[in-house]
Design a protein around this nucleic acid. Structure first.
Lengths: 336, 336
DNA sequence: CTGAAAGCGCTAACAT
DNA sequence: ATGTTAGCGCTTTCAG
């Protein structure tokens, strides 16, 4: 039983109207007499007609699909953003082409070009870095792009995020006012400005406010993964650190478990503050004290912003960089 | 600076060849004289020509995109499958339209219809249940579908998975031979045959082998979430249970943390075996003893199978249901 | 090895 | 309110 290809033409013929009329009822154009509309609707149902989105895309130059670039689909931070993105997208009838970038510049470029070739109406970019080639790509296309949950080194791109610097400052401050003489900065790649500039500056701001000298040796750079956190444990212990601010939850979870497995009691002998408030913070024991971010909202608002840009509302320059409120929650990885 | 629309026609004109020839070189058709090919390639590069995938899709009836239906992108089990899917897909030059289904029959139907309207070349379905309407949809399309990481109640659909019944039996057996007189079965929705039939039967198989009477009261049904596991803790304690087999890692993690927070010592006073070997099992403390599954491979092989089906290799009926090997790993939620 | 031409299924002026 | 008619940008016979 082969699938019969029923096209708009079949419907038109069967309903004794023109293709244009069928197109009108399918697209909800009001300029159709009710009776005609009903007749067409009946035929559509009877024939089980389904508009071909590809043909529609070619003719209308709108595909109602947006591309989403995600560093890693298994990373809880980005996955939670993706949830918000997906919900709002489906609310606005957009589909999502989701592509893993593995944070690899080559691959990112490849997937973005692919997305553009597929004529996506817009792109949500999750990632911390925009290479020169990628910037070029973004600049030479009319397809709107919004950066979600990070700061990319491209000032032209709209973004939705929190104030990472302020948040990092507060987190560090919390640790400083907890009787810690020194606080470590455990981070993902510093070449990402979110880590190497924003958060690091927030960390330094706090130190300065408390008259603590910044020590480069207390900055521990990793690739940001759980494994890296776990593996760095002994270095960090050897460092003499008793309190750290960590830029990523996976990283923090790895460190926490590493410490626990090494017999270090958190929070009694070591305090940790993390950054993203993903569910990892609640999964581990002790639960991680963390900066809180409206993750779902960041995704949702990014997508909402994108819909506006796709509709051509790129007038309002105020809205270009949306900074959402963050918070802080004390859990079990810090002392009362 | 508007994006110039350089089409295949522009290239043809500039290179002084026909559109057909340009199409041939773009598609790697060997029937082109080397010099001609080079000339065209030069023009393509110079003009920065990018083929429009939508037009290509309409003309060729192949979109090189596949639809992936995922119950929840933030569920570690499905996310890890998705990783394998994505890797193999990009290996075969396919893009992925990823859609959250929220395990909601209505929404699943909607997203599948959408995928079909977008003319995806194939669909990877992750989910435990195929409604009648959905079955209908699948049966009346020529678009191949493969079920990844579950058993859907539709015998016509190819699937890639492990032997859930055997795995559940082994897990239960392990607990039984550990001196536990009774073992609980903590599960996600029983209406899913993976839980209500396969795994439950494996559990019963083990009980029967050990002459333990099956007690309905030891079967605790939940929605399968972390929250549900946490919330059910006191009921499970009240039940008198000291050992349980759990059908999902999120659920198991919730229960584990619930027990710990309630002052129950795992594994000394309570043993847990989980099912999926996601990274949740290694994140929690104590780490969860679990059935192991080749999650990445399940995704990867599903996608590989799908590529074969999309190429029309639907001859080999042996390959229709791929059962991968599973294993078992003792960690810290069970006694030595 | 190359070109001409007919679509793919739909939308969007433009008429009527 | 409805129909006619060009395309959208590309692939794919079919000729030559």
């Amino acid at each position: 039983m082969e699938k019969q290809s029923v096209t708009i033409y079949t419907v038109a013929r069967e309903a004794r109207v023109s293709m244009a009329t069928v197109s009108r009822v399918v697209n909800g154009n009001p300029n159709v007499k009710p009776e005609t509309r009903q007749k067409v609707l009946d035929v559509i149902k009877q024939l089980n007609y389904r508009p071909n989105a590809v043909a529609r895309g070619l003719a209308s130059k709108r595909t109602t699909t947006v591309g989403v670039v995600i560093p890693s689909i298994t990373d809880p931070y980005f996955a939670e953003l993706a949830l918000g993105i997906d919900d709002v997208a489906s609310m606005y009838k957009y589909n999502i082409i989701l592509t893993n970038s593995d944070s690899d510049d080559e691959k990112i470029l490849k997937v973005v070009r692919n997305l553009l070739a597929k004529q996506v109406d817009g792109i949500i970019f999750m990632g911390h870095d925009v290479s020169d080639d990628l910037r070029n790509e973004f600049e030479s296309t009319n397809t709107p792009v919004v950066v979600a949950g990070s700061i990319a080194n491209d000032d032209n791109l709209p973004s939705v995020r929190i104030d990472y610097r302020a948040a990092a400052k507060e987190a560090t401050e919390f640790l400083l006012t907890h009787g810690n003489q020194q606080v470590g900065y455990i981070t993902g790649p510093l070449r990402y400005s979110i880590n190497g500039t924003e958060r690091l500056n927030g960390y330094k701001d706090a130190l300065a406010d408390h008259n603590v000298k910044f020590e480069q040796s207390l900055v521990v750079e990793t690739d940001g993964s759980y494994q890296a956190g776990y593996a760095k444990t002994k270095d960090i212990i050897a460092n003499g650190l008793k309190a750290v601010y960590v830029t990523d939850d996976s990283l923090a979870a790895g460190l926490l478990n590493g410490l626990t497995d090494a017999g270090v009691n958190v929070p009694a002998d070591f305090e940790i503050v993390s950054s993203n408030d993903t569910n990892y913070t609640k999964l581990v024991r002790p639960m991680l004290t963390s900066i809180t971010q409206p993750l779902y909202d960041i995704g949702a608002i990014s997508m909402r912003l994108l819909t506006k840009l796709m509709d051509g509302d790129d007038n309002n320059d105020d809205e270009k960089n949306v900074i959402l409120d963050h918070g802080f929650v004390e859990r079990q990885s810090t002392r009362k």
